[in-house]
Amino acid sequence: MITKKDLEHIGWLARLELSDDEKEKYTPKLNSVLDYFNELDEVDTEGVEPTYHVLQLYNVFRDDEPGIGSITQEEALSNAPKKQDEFFKAPRMM
C-alpha cells in the first residue's frame, strides 16, 4: 500500500515534481496496480532462479581501439537546451 508520503519519496527518488492534485490522483491508481501485482504472492518461487537475461550470453567485449562512433563537439552540443562556450550549462548546485 503506497501512502501519500511514500509517493512523495518516490517522486523525490525519480525526480518528478508532484502537485497536491497529482498526489491525490496517483495514489489510488498506483495502489490498484500494486494490488493486481500482489497476485504473484500465490506463486511458489522457492528455489527458482531469476531470469535477468533471456539468452545465455556472456563475455561480450569490444577491443580497446578507437571506434567510429565518436561525434564532433558541435554535434554533441547541437541539442543542448542551454550551453555556454563549449560546455553544457546546468543549473546551480545549491
Binding site: 571506434g67 567510429i68 562512433g69 565518436s70 563537439q73 560546455f87
Partner: peptide
C-alpha cells in the same frame, strides 16, 4: 565506448559519442 582517453589537453565535450553522452 570507442571514445579516446587522451582528452586532457583538448577542448571540453570533444571526446564524446552517443554512449558516453
Amino acid at each position: 565506448c570507442g571514445c579516446t582517453t587522451d582528452y586532457h589537453n583538448d577542448p571540453p565535450n570533444s571526446h564524446v559519442c552517443p554512449v558516453c553522452l
